[in-house]
Design a protein around this nucleic acid. Structure first.
Length: 291
DNA sequence: CGTTGATCCTGGGCGC
DNA sequence: TGCGCCCAGGATCAAC
């Protein structure tokens, strides 16, 4: 499930390949996932160049010459690149995105919903098995007024993520896990990194926000960006579906301390990890290391 | 305001 | 071998 680190790795991967490229053609396979008015997309998008690739929380933003593409990958969304290169003998050579790993599927397949063809022989595919994701075509003004973006809280890797901001919002009695999942407070955390951050800070997911001691809250405040940065550096967490634009998986699964490790021994103390449900989400924790 | 549950959707794992 | 059932969870919305 792509969270902030995974979306950031996708952003970087796309930036390296399609920045300044021009959209030549496009193909929409699943109109309900390309909003609004997919019938207008071709006319509107052709000829526009990619001016910048940005990320806000779990949203990916492609800034084009005139418009913006706002992408949310939700659970199983992927942005995959394929490149057609021409060699000396001018023979077209398709470099499959699966070049780096065992080929699992061809593009486009039945889960592919959008194809953008760029200058330079590069194709970008939006693929999403469960169809929770979305690609929206918006004017810059519409993007600025997008309700999903407007609601977001601070970027945990940005300058506004201060101790003061964090501390002020830890009022009330709801579970700290629910608070961390709330995108209007801190934007970009999902189920994996919430569990990891709470383990790193030694805090049980069910603790009420207002019950955290200052030292605990400070530890959590520091642990969040540390864990996100570490996950970006290792290419994000690939459990099943998440892939880089070039088809590689991320390596951060090897670094996870608690997520997906229910009933396995804690890597810090050796006690058996537990799995419960908190804030409607599968929740992994160490009953000894977390208080 | 906060919480809960339903909704969207498919593949994989499980029990029988 | 296959069927039915349940689970995974990001965001949104309705109900209380």
């Amino acid at each position: 499930m792509p969270e902030l680190p995974e979306v950031e790795v996708v952003r970087q991967g796309l930036e390296a390949r399609i920045l300044h490229k021009q959209i030549e053609t496009l193909e929409i396979y699943t109109p309900q996932m390309t909003l609004p008015n997919p019938e207008t997309w071709s006319k509107r998008l052709k000829g526009q160049r990619v001016e910048a690739l940005e990320r806000r929380a779990k949203y990916l933003i492609l800034r084009l010459s005139q418009d913006c593409l706002l992408v949310h990958l939700r659970m199983t969304g992927q942005m995959l690149l394929q490149e057609t290169q021409t060699d000396q003998s001018s023979e077209a050579l398709v470099l499959p995105f699966t070049y780096y790993r065992r080929p699992m599927f061809d593009l486009p397949d039945k889960h592919t919903h959008l194809k953008l063809s760029f200058s330079g022989g590069i194709q970008l595919y939006f693929r999403d098995i469960r169809k929770f994701g979305r690609v929206e075509l918006l004017s810059p003004a519409e993007l600025a007024a997008h309700p999903g973006l407007l609601k977001l809280g601070v970027e945990p890797l940005g300058p506004d993520y201060t101790w003061s901001y964090f501390q002020k919002r830890l009022k009330g009695q709801r579970a700290i896990k629910a608070f961390l999942l709330d995108q209007t407070q801190i934007a970009g955390l999902g189920n994996i990194y919430v569990d990891e951050a709470l383990f790193a800070a030694g805090i049980l997911p069910t603790r009420a926000t207002a019950s955290l001691k200052k030292s605990e809250a400070q530890k959590l405040h520091v642990a969040i960006p540390a864990i996100l940065s570490q996950a970006i550096a290792s290419g994000g967490t690939t459990l099943k579906d998440y892939l880089h634009p070039d088809g590689q998986g991320g390596e951060h699964k090897e670094d996870l301390q608690v997520y997906g490790r229910g009933k396995l021994p804690c890597l810090r103390c050796g006690k058996t990890l537990e799995k419960t449900v908190v804030a409607q989400r599968g929740t992994h924790f160490c009953p000894q290391c977390q208080k």
